[in-house]
Simulated assay, not measured.
Amino acid sequence: MSSLSFSHGSSHDAVTARLRAAGCVFAEDEARLLISAATAPADLAALVERRAAGHPLELVLGWAEFRGLRIDVQPGVFVPRRRTEFLVEQALAHAPHARVVVDLCCGSGAVGAALAAALGPVELHAADIDPAAVRCARRNIAPYGGQAHTGDLFGALPGALRGRIGILAANVPYVPTADIALLPAEARDHEPPAALDGGADGLDLLRRVASEAARWLAPDGCLLVETSERQTPAALDAFRRGGLTARPARCEERHAQVVVGTVP
């Protein structure tokens, strides 16, 4: 830990300089957030040093912004990406009147919370294989009456959901195993490998979800999965093999690629 100390209330320039020296691109904005989060000068120094050491800003703050919501995040839980807001937008466009929503591979539960916030009263479920993620998601979906479940994909869900899900958002890991080492250090060193690693071609979990989704969707329901542009043809094929009609959607601005599946 550095011996840096900051005078709380007059430290913006000093914090910005420390963050900039550490390579933070948005040092001024981050400085404001860290100063707001600190309760005392010593606390501020600790937050700044964690960020300068490469910890993700969201984990240092304890929250991430997602579609205007403040989502609680904790060490060991996947940090929601702003590009995933596109998946939420696509879900709302395809099923604007959905009454049953499932956030599968939920991580922090950001997607489920954002959908519930936009849709109004819904039956909301979130599920993840990682108990730490489920605990975090439970806090984030509680304001919407959501239930969080621990388990492996559909095995975590109550059987009563079968055939009733209007929006099934499955933000599965999709980084090929060999590419994990190429990720930015913030993700590689500070996020759980299971939330990143999608197997040899990155599509192991996507294929499992696509193979079962049709049995869980309502007749007018939809499955949405985020993937990469190069993986999209194989993802579309997996959806179709699972009995779904599939189409891709892309947001160039956010470099976001989503595959949307519906029951024929």
Rank of each mutant, 00 (worst) to 15 (best):
H149G: 08
H149C: 12
T150W: 01
G151K: 13
G151R: 11
D152F: 07
L153Y: 08
L153S: 11
F154Q: 02
F154R: 00
G155R: 06
G155S: 09
A156F: 04
L157D: 09
L157T: 08
P158L: 07
A160K: 10
A160T: 12
L161E: 06
R162C: 12
I165E: 06
I167Y: 04
I167W: 04
I167V: 15
I167F: 05
A170T: 11
A170H: 10
N171I: 07
V172T: 15
V172C: 12
V172P: 03
V172H: 08
P173G: 09
P173I: 08
Y174F: 15
Y174D: 04
P176R: 06
T177M: 07
T177S: 15
A178H: 13
A178N: 08
A178F: 01
D179C: 05
D179A: 13
I180P: 07
A181N: 07
A181H: 12
L182K: 15
L182P: 02
L182M: 13
L182R: 15
L183I: 07
L183R: 03
P184M: 10
P184A: 12
A185M: 09
A185N: 12
E186G: 05
A187M: 03
R188Q: 09
H190F: 15
H190R: 10
H190E: 06
E191I: 10
E191M: 15
P192E: 00
P192F: 04
P192G: 09
A194Y: 01
A194D: 02
A194L: 14
A194Q: 13
A195S: 13
L196T: 03
D197N: 15
G198T: 10
G198C: 11
G199V: 01
A200N: 10
D201N: 12
G202P: 03
G202I: 01
L203A: 14
D204I: 02
L206G: 09
R207N: 05
R208T: 07
R208A: 14
R208H: 08
V209A: 06
A210I: 07
A210F: 05
A210G: 12
S211R: 15
S211L: 11
S211F: 05
S211D: 10
E212A: 15
A213Q: 04
A214N: 02
W216K: 07
W216T: 14
L217N: 02
A218E: 08
A218L: 07
P219H: 08
P219L: 09
G221F: 02
G221Y: 01
C222H: 14
L224T: 10
V225Q: 00
T227F: 03
S228E: 15
S228I: 02
S228G: 15
R230S: 13
Q231Y: 10
